[in-house]
Each structure stands twice: as C-alpha cells, then as structure tokens.
C-alpha cells in the first residue's frame, strides 16, 4: 500500500482532495465580496447562504 501511495504525485493527490474544493469555494466567496456591488448576485443573501451549505457539506467529506 505504501509504495502505491507514494507513487501518486502530490499534485494529483490534491486535485482529488475535497480541501482543494473548499479552498476554491473560499476563493470564489472572497472574489464575490471584492466584485463591485453592481453584481446583483453579490447583493443577495442567498449566494453566501448557498456557498455556506456547500462548504459545510465539504467539511464533512472526511467521514465519507
């Protein structure tokens, strides 16, 4: 098992990891907060709420 695990590159490991998805989601949220308020999506509570429940689902991925 150890040799098979070591043979997979770290980049490939992280690509398949939910922590990367969580980081992308956080980056998306930060981008939305920085976007000028003209963006209608950023001004409604539903957008952060939906992103929030996705983040909470991802947080539990370790127990899958």
């Amino acid at each position: 098992m150890r040799s098979v695990t070591a043979a997979v590159p770290a980049t490939r490991r992280w690509t398949a990891d939910p922590l990367l998805l969580l980081a992308l989601l956080a980056a998306t949220a930060v981008t939305l907060t920085l976007v000028p308020r003209s963006g209608a999506a950023a001004a409604t509570w539903q957008v952060p709420a939906l992103l929030g429940v996705v983040a909470s689902g991802l947080a539990l991925s370790g127990s899958t």
Binding site: L19, A29, P48, A49, A59
Partner: peptide
Amino acid sequence: ALERSGTVVTAALVTWATVL
C-alpha cells in the same frame, strides 16, 4: 484540518448572509 477549515468558511459565509 478540512473539518475546521470548513467550519471557518461556513461561519464567514453565514455571517455575510446574515448581514445581507
């Protein structure tokens, strides 16, 4: 780390939604 990061991100987003 994933569980804790998820909690921090969720809390930030929920706080943002609450403010809105």
